[in-house]
Write a protein that binds this DNA or RNA. Sequence first.
DNA 1: TAGATTGTTAATCGATTAACAATC
DNA 2: TAGATTGTTAATCGATTAACAATC
Lengths: 218, 218
Amino acid sequence: MKPFKISEAVVRRLPVYLQVLNDLHMRDVQTVSSQELGNKLDLNPAQIRKDLAYFGDFGRKGIGYDVSYLIEKIRQILKLDQPLNVGLVGAGNLGRALCNYNTYLKDNMKITAVFDAHPSMVGASINGLSVLPMDKLQETVAERNIRIGIITVPAVEAQNVADRFVDAGVAGILNFAPTILRVPDHVRIHYADFTTELLSLAYYLEKEGDDEDETVVD
Amino acid sequence: MKPFKISEAVVRRLPVYLQVLNDLHMRDVQTVSSQELGNKLDLNPAQIRKDLAYFGDFGRKGIGYDVSYLIEKIRQILKLDQPLNVGLVGAGNLGRALCNYNTYLKDNMKITAVFDAHPSMVGASINGLSVLPMDKLQETVAERNIRIGIITVPAVEAQNVADRFVDAGVAGILNFAPTILRVPDHVRIHYADFTTELLSLAYYLEKEGDDEDETVVD
DNA sequence: TAGATTGTTAATCGATTAACAATC
DNA sequence: TAGATTGTTAATCGATTAACAATC
């Protein structure tokens, strides 16, 4: 077969599949069908099969998917089968929360450096990491082979931090600040701004006392 | 015109428009065209015009959109023109971070109660709020008219907390735990799991030493 | 008036779903 | 073998984009 591009929608579902599969694995489930996965995720089974089939023939007709094998394969696809070092700028509440989440980002992906522009914050210890000053960013990214930068600073400082990460040579950025950032094409940027989720959630709330499901405009 | 449903993709873009418009407003920009908005957001101008036109005729031909007026209108659409109380369960690092973000969730949307199952955490003060025990959840949601619940507890406890929120009568839930939750149809649930964003970001990183933009499979 | 830009229809594009032969 | 379930093609659905008349 020839190379082809996988759509973002597909890639975005892979971590979700992984989540459910890890859960099944923990509960010693050996095999799962696209039907069962679809039930758990509220997705069409055909879509799940199609998503997985982009990357290979992972299932067995009449049987389903071997849970452990599929976990291994998805981890390979997401490149989680190799070490991936992450740096974080902004040692505030959110930054500290993410550092402590480190256990959740299974094995190979790891926050290995934390930076903060505030002199008073430098030297503090967060989950075993000593907070570094911003002027150490460039060299630390190189030394520790950091390939992803996480931004947890206020919106006004986010672009500046992004520029520093780009200069230092990271390949991807995850931005938690509620602002759009400009980065060169070769750097991939994802947004994790919960305010977007929260505000769009407000749209769907019924007026108090209402009962209907439909969202309407007249 | 007759009632019709607005797609999720459209609703999800509204908060992003609001973000950029607020920024323009702060910089005293009076008027903006769909072209300019499109440049800032990397979106097609026609898409922006179409999105806004679902809700009304907010622009002026030959001129563009009045920034203040459009902000007002989008806030109305998202129901941010009325008070909306939010409760949060899980006073860990992430929960505390969100409480401190309170200033970001402009004016009307506000975290007005924080709960935690840990007795040692109860009574602690977070950004002016005293942490309440879980058995106060039901009555507090009613008393303070809380309509959205935020979940920032570990994955294993998330479903239980969601059930409590549902029983207490919230209309929407924002879940930060990396797990899929089951809620009745009349409760709207949104996910703010950053691990999904982080793992899918890993997929797009070039292998070290590579240079090309294309993501391929063979 | 001439230039700009909206609101909207029609065309295009892409993603989801249904259906089914292959096969475990 | 009979039942189950994949991988994949074709059909459907929905979202994005282009184009342009209306009009400021």
